[in-house]
């Protein structure tokens, strides 16, 4: 199982041709207390780089961008009643969608964990 990252602070866990997507711990900390998560519907098609979800704190609304293109297979329904899961467990229980990967070559554009850590280190300076 492999976890990748984007510069827009999404994480992607890849299992065979399915990708589970959420936002990173860094991103949830920046947003603060999350109060609402708006997800796409199952069957929707994500396009890499385009917005597919919105995460709201009391004072901000952040767009979440698709790290990969593909069809939405499943949503994390628990987020509608418990959006705080994104704060409490961003990279596990706070996952957002599962997507069937359409184009494996898109994986190459993603960062591995070290590169992402490097990136946020620089962004903080």
């Amino acid at each position: 199982m492999e976890v990748k990252f984007t510069k827009s602070h999404e994480w992607i866990r890849i299992e065979e041709n399915t990708a589970t997507i959420g936002i990173t711990d860094y991103a949830q900390k920046e947003l603060g207390d999350i109060v609402f998560v708006e997800l796409p519907e199952a069957g929707d098609n994500l396009i890499q780089g385009q917005q597919f979800a919105t995460i709201e704190s009391t004072k901000a609304a952040a767009e979440v961008y698709a790290p990969l293109s593909g069809e939405v297979l499943e949503l994390n329904a628990a987020l509608s009643d418990n959006p705080q899961l994104v704060n409490e467990s961003p990279q596990s229980q706070g996952w957002m969608v599962k997507v069937r990967i359409r184009d494996v070559s898109q994986l190459q554009s993603l960062l591995d964990e070290d590169a992402y850590k490097d990136f946020i280190g620089k962004e903080n300076k």
Partner: peptide, 10 residues
């Protein structure tokens, strides 16, 4: 005292 705006929105 401090009002819980997070709970209000959740």
């Amino acid at each position: 005292r401090r009002v819980d705006e997070t709970a209000a929105a959740r």
